[in-house]
Amino acid sequence: MAKETGIMSWKELELGNSITRPGNAGELKTGDWRSMRPVTDYEKCTKCGQCYIFCPDMVYKKNAEGYYEQNYYYCKGCGICAHECPVSCIAMVQEGD
């Protein structure tokens, strides 16, 4: 637990306060920041990949059929993907309350 929260004894620190678990920021749920959620209409999607390459949070992954799916754990809801989709098939919808 201490390793995740950083609330740890000085004795547990790695040399020089370094971090030895690469990419462990992936544990952080930045999806909590979101108020709007991007939702893709796969009927219209052309699989062009723009949403994928323009997402600052590496939210999109290509699935077996070649469509790009969001991982909402990280999506901050910035709306770039919706803004950039050439066929406007991503809608930003209000997160449910």
Partner: peptide, 25 residues
């Protein structure tokens, strides 16, 4: 090209850049 994008992400999700940060992009 957009079709053969390397999948690798040396920089991972979970960073704390502001929403829509063009610098981290």
């Amino acid at each position: 090209n957009l079709k053969n994008m390397p999948e690798v992400e040396p920089l991972s999700s979970g960073h704390r850049a502001c929403q829509g940060c063009g610098e981290i992009l």
